[in-house]
């Protein structure tokens, strides 16, 4: 049967893996290509590389990085960070990426999702949503790496993106990200229940139980985490062995 996916995420700034808490206070976590290859060997099901470098040369550096990753990694990988056009996507796919993730640019110009899907297929379009639960109890979409609030509800944007041709949703809860208190189960479950495309839960993983819960109660198709893997707090093999004991289908 189809297995639940465990996806390490590598945030990259100026060629190094970094990790912050609630989107700030970045710490260095090593060479992304070496880390990615290690995770693939340990049984990661996919990898996500997000370039958070904010320079004008970023497009070329990202392309070079993707070429390096593609040479060393034989599992699917998604690349994101500042992708603004179908042309950007074409360059990254040509360099060996399997999927791209789009975020702010797609929100500002939803036709981008449709254009990428028409050109390269829905399967390569991952829509990343950074979302935060406000005091009114609703989850809202945030842009620019979590710095800009919008008045759009997460569920509404996710529905629209799915209709436009997004192939998967990468859902990051800003309330949970970096806290290690567990994934945001309510919004994950809402998206997983209402959308017909896979939902990748992200933000808050701290223990192996959190993964069990996000699959069983959040109904996520995949779970993404960063620091717990980078800082070796949880190993992918032990995590998968644990999930199997909990009757979650995983690839061992």
């Amino acid at each position: 049967m189809l297995t639940k996916r465990i996806i390490p995420c590598l945030d990259i700034k100026d060629g190094r893996t970094v990790k912050g808490t609630n989107f700030v206070n970045l710490r260095d976590a090593g060479d992304p290509v070496a880390l990615g290859a290690l995770y693939a060997q340990q049984g990661a099901d996919e990898l996500v590389f997000l370039d958070i470098t904010a320079t004008v040369e970023r497009r070329d550096t990202l392309r070079e990085l993707v070429l390096k990753i593609a040479r060393q990694i034989n599992i699917p990988f998604t690349v994101g960070g500042g992708i603004k056009s179908v042309e950007d996507v074409g360059l990254l796919l040509k360099s060996g990426a399997d999927k791209v993730s789009v975020n702010t640019a797609a929100f500002n110009d939803p036709a981008l999702i449709k254009d990428i899907a028409l050109e390269f297929g829905s399967q390569c379009v991952v829509l990343a949503i950074d979302t935060k639960k406000e005091e009114d109890g609703e989850w809202y979409v945030y842009l620019h790496g979590g710095r800009t609030k919008t008045n759009t509800r997460c569920i509404d944007w996710a529905r629209e993106a799915a209709a436009l041709g997004a192939g998967e949703i990468l859902l990051t809860s800003m309330n949970n990200d970096g806290t290690k208190n567990g994934f945001a189960l309510d919004i994950t479950r809402m998206l997983a229940t209402e959308l017909s495309i896979p939902v990748i839960a992200s933000g808050g993983a701290g223990t192996m139980e959190h993964f069990n819960t996000v699959f069983k109660e959040g109904l996520a198709d995949a779970a993404l985490a960063a620091s717990i893997f980078h800082f070796k707090e949880i190993g992918i093999p032990e995590l998968k062995a644990y999930l199997q004991q909990q009757n979650i289908p995983v690839r061992l």
């Binding site: 189809l2 639940k4 996916r5 099901d45 896979p198 198709d221 995949a222």
Partner: peptide, 14 residues
């Protein structure tokens, strides 16, 4: 059961 079997099938299967 479309809740646990999303289309496209995406991921690892045996």
């Amino acid at each position: 059961d479309q809740l646990t079997h999303k289309i496209p099938q995406t991921g690892w299967n045996s």
